[in-house]
Simulated scan of single mutants.
Amino acid sequence: MGTPSHNYWGRLRSWREYLERLVDLHQITDIVYYADRRPYHRIAQAIARERGINAYAYEFGYLRPDWITLEKWGMGAYSHFPDDPQKIRSLAANVQVEWPSDRYPHPFIQEATSEVVYNLIPVFFPYLYPFYERDRYYHPIKDYFSYIPRLARSTKSETMADQIVEELTASNRPYFVVPLQMQSDYQIRHHSPYVHLSEMIDEVMQSFKHYAHKDALLVFKIHPFDNNCENWPKVISGLASHYGCRERIRVLDGGNLHQLLAHSQGTVLVNSTTGLQALNLGIPVKTLGIAIYDIEGLTCQLPLDKFWNNATKPDPALNQDLRKLLAASIQVHGSFFTPAGREAAAEEFTDRLVNGTVNSHGAYEEIPPRLERARKIGVPIPDDSYWSDKC
């Protein structure tokens, strides 16, 4: 790390004491961290609240590609972004957004290499940060080397998926799409009621079997970055056999998601940003976790069992208002993976942090508006959370 940075080589149990001293010594006014809810970051956020200073989390953007999320205090269940449709409409009416024309494309291999190198350095060079505690679902060795079998068959899998998508879109048979997220995703671990994604797959398949029209199909699409550890095709096949509906289930490892969604009857997901893509296409969306876009008038608010036959389409005007307000308040145009994208994002980050315009244009609720629903559906709110006794 370069000057004037500080490296921490202690243990997690001593992190709070170290950071408190650092904050007091340098009179720090803002804490900014990448990825919400990691153990070190939860402690940093708690310190910020105790000292009355600001804390900001940033991550990949909701309005992908070429956007980065920057929110005050947290994301997902802890987001302060409003969820009331009338308030979103009202606030968006006063927002002017000039949608950037700049694009920051990058090859998949660049993103994958950055991810792998970052997470394997502590494994192969543990003496650099000997007491660092990973909070990854899988050990990095298992995580990354499990990709190899999937990569080896990727060409064949993509060809088969493309063929199935063509067959689905060419037929008149109704189908629903279930885009799977990754088991290791923080959006699953901290913003959904599921310990394991197989629970979600079971819930969806059971409901589909009993309540969807008998001619309908259920199409599971594996996440393009999935590491193959869970063997989702086997899990899905086993559950389909259990519920006696194998002939109505399809599993895709590849294929054109846009085309797949555009011809579907709807999509069921936990909280993936694929939901925003579906909303843009006017496709009914049912979320099973906590999502920034799970708003009355956009996503279907009916129970899952009723979604299959009574799915409601999103209001296109409200969807545009949501996008406008997101872009103006908690989305920063830029990219982690190109010099131009990083430069643009850093400039906008600096401007918003210095001028206090994160969650601007009124897009900030004092109490995170999604926490109450999070509790109701079984999302674990840890005892160390500032909000654990406020919802």
Rank of each mutant, 00 (worst) to 15 (best):
126 P>E: 09
103 R>P: 00
127 Y>D: 04
115 E>R: 08
106 H>Y: 15
95 V>N: 02
97 V>E: 09
106 H>W: 12
118 Y>Q: 10
89 R>F: 07
128 L>Y: 11
129 Y>G: 00
98 E>N: 14
92 A>G: 10
104 Y>F: 15
127 Y>E: 08
117 V>H: 06
125 F>A: 13
126 P>I: 08
113 T>S: 12
92 A>N: 03
105 P>R: 00
110 Q>L: 13
102 D>N: 12
127 Y>P: 00
94 N>C: 05
103 R>V: 09
131 F>G: 00
115 E>P: 01
106 H>T: 10
95 V>R: 05
106 H>V: 11
128 L>C: 02
105 P>C: 00
115 E>H: 11
114 S>G: 07
118 Y>L: 07
121 I>V: 15
100 P>S: 01
116 V>H: 03
98 E>R: 14
107 P>Q: 04
132 Y>F: 14
121 I>R: 15
91 L>N: 04
101 S>P: 00
127 Y>G: 06
120 L>R: 04
121 I>D: 06
94 N>Q: 13
106 H>L: 06
124 F>C: 03
131 F>T: 00
107 P>S: 09
121 I>C: 08
132 Y>S: 13
125 F>H: 07
93 A>C: 00
94 N>E: 14
118 Y>K: 12
93 A>L: 06
93 A>M: 04
118 Y>N: 04
89 R>M: 03
131 F>H: 11
